[in-house]
Design a protein around this nucleic acid. Structure first.
Lengths: 338, 338
DNA sequence: CTGAAAGCGCTTACAG
DNA sequence: CTGAAAGCGCTTACAG
């Protein structure tokens, strides 16, 4: 057993050991070309011998930089967000930034607390999937500190800000068009809450397509529920009570769609045969569930890497007007609505 | 539009504004009781007016503490690890620690790089699900810096270290016992690689139960494959070529089991009827797939919070011998093997 | 090519 | 109850 070395070796100690000044040691550390080869090797040998570990925190403080990015999402136990995290994390890793993670569970108070913590940690930027109903002041506060911020997936009405998302209107439209083409005329819109910008947009595209096809938009067929599997179960249960039952349903997201299909199967309905179902997001489960879910792909992890790229550009000085990158979704036809 | 305030307000500026010294302002900040009420309020007012943001990085440097913990896992796009992250993140949040995340994709080189980065970031501790075959030196290096480390899910043979895991031997045994009770005598063991400590242990318990029941352990029935859905598909494909086909399969984990069942269904087999299937972990998909997967629950997120709790105890000074916390798994009987 | 010195933003004995 | 001073571990002009 070696003895535990409680104090970390400092750059000054390395310098002394190598017989140079702290400044020189620092320059060697960062690979400056102005240092003589011989000196360089001497210092590097000392670092190895003493087991020197660079203190990036101290260095960042002194040179006023930061190598962490804050990421705020609703929750982790949600395939949409865990995939988003994958995309973001991977991209930021390439830029040498580490991510500090925070989950709001859609509480404004938690969101405020997380932002404070992150700002105190000197994050170089923030990627935010904001709690619905967040006031613009939330964004202003961050901007005033000169910290870049990009919104992802959820837009904040009336706020000018970098944003990465998908074209929800188009997504709603292509889903509806596919259902109409199959001959459906009474189509339910299940799950999610009306205040979510993404739901508003999906519904808007959905309604547009119906009207264009000369169909009526029946407000009773839009049923709100939490965006969870249980929410889907509940929404479908409500739907069953309708006297003139819809023959198809477009769900706010895949998680809801899976809840709906689960309940259907329990009751003996066959999704894709008795009632057609379309979801949204294309989470991994969509391809696994039986029947496989037809869905609108939002390319979540691509959204994540775009967000990370834009944020990093801002961090490194990009000064253009706020940008919106809206990815085009695609209909993935599987078994639940062929 | 307010003007962007590029430089952050400093504690000295707050102090001047309030007409006190920097030391006093610092004490107010941290709620010291030695400061007069009036002074306190004066300083707090100045902080608000100037929009002061605490610089936790500088504070941590000065007082030699850290509020970040490193977490190293294989990958995020894996329900086992994302659930583990949930448990860990939630628990550390309570302790005021933020997590720095790293994913190795089971590459030793990446693991080394991640550890270096984390150590440079002055993490107060590390939770590690080590790459199989990691040498003990990996752990020693961290320990020499006085940074506590706890292993989770995967044990390192021959290394004395805090560890949180589940009783894989017992898990393998209860799965096998259930299958034997149902009358099976030829049972496959599908997926995972032999070098994984968890697989070795599950297999050990599994074999034990077979022998105890007077059954033969046929090495040909253990098929290795990556622990992915595709791995499950491949493993089942291989199984089909056997002249004397097994009537049941115990899979290394749920992801593999789901791949196996997917392939079965494609070929017209009914899991739980034609062939009984048992998985391991109880990931969310296990309850969603059709048929619902019978599995051994490893209570992943509980493992995560235990790991976080133990690490935090170490960080705050717990000095006992290395501890192993081995959680007891439970058989969750669903449709794929009733 | 290398060193002496100032300083990043904070905390913490110590003195009064 | 409050302030002056030293210092955490590093970087960065500046001078030579």
């Amino acid at each position: 057993m070696e003895q535990e070395q409680q104090r970390r070796v400092t750059l000054l100690e390395v310098a002394k050991h190598a017989g140079v000044s702290r400044a020189t040691a620092s320059l060697v550390l960062r690979g400056s070309p102005r240092i003589a080869k011989a000196t360089q090797e001497k210092v590097q040998a000392s670092m190895r011998q003493l087991g020197y570990v660079y203190d990036r925190v101290a260095a960042n403080l002194r040179s006023n930089v930061s190598s962490t990015v804050g990421l705020i999402i609703m929750e982790l136990a949600n395939p949409f967000y865990s995939e988003l995290l994958v995309g973001i994390h991977q991209e930021l890793d390439k830029c040498g930034q580490t991510v500090i993670l925070g989950t709001t569970f859609d509480s404004l108070a938690i969101q405020e607390r997380l932002l404070s913590t992150m700002l105190e940690h000197r994050v170089s930027g923030i990627i935010l999937s904001a709690v619905p109903g967040s006031p613009g002041a939330v964004i202003d506060r961050i901007r005033q500190l000169g910290v870049p911020i990009v919104l992802v997936g959820r837009r904040l009405p009336g706020v000018e800000c970098d944003y990465i998302g998908i074209n929800n209107v188009a997504g709603g439209r292509i889903a509806a068009e596919h259902l109409i083409r199959k001959g459906h005329s009474r189509i339910a819109f299940l799950g999610g809450f009306a205040q979510l910008s993404s739901r508003k947009e999906r519904k808007q595209g959905f309604d547009q397509a119906l009207r264009q096809a000369g169909l009526e938009v029946d407000p009773a067929l839009a049923i709100e529920s939490p965006a969870t599997r249980q929410g889907g179960i509940d929404a479908f249960t409500k739907l069953l009570c309708f006297p003139d039952r819809p023959t198809a349903a477009f769900c706010y997201n895949d998680t809801i769609a899976i809840g709906v299909m689960q309940k259907m199967r329990e009751l003996g309905f066959v999704p894709g045969k008795d009632i057609d179902i379309i979801g949204f997001d294309d989470i991994p489960e969509a391809a696994i569930f039986s029947p496989k879910l037809t869905t609108v792909s939002s390319e979540i992890s691509r959204m994540g890497s775009h967000a990370a790229q834009l944020l990093y550009a801002r961090i490194t000085g990009l000064q253009t007007e706020p940008q919106s990158i809206i990815l085009m979704p695609e209909l993935i036809i599987r078994e639940s609505c062929t």
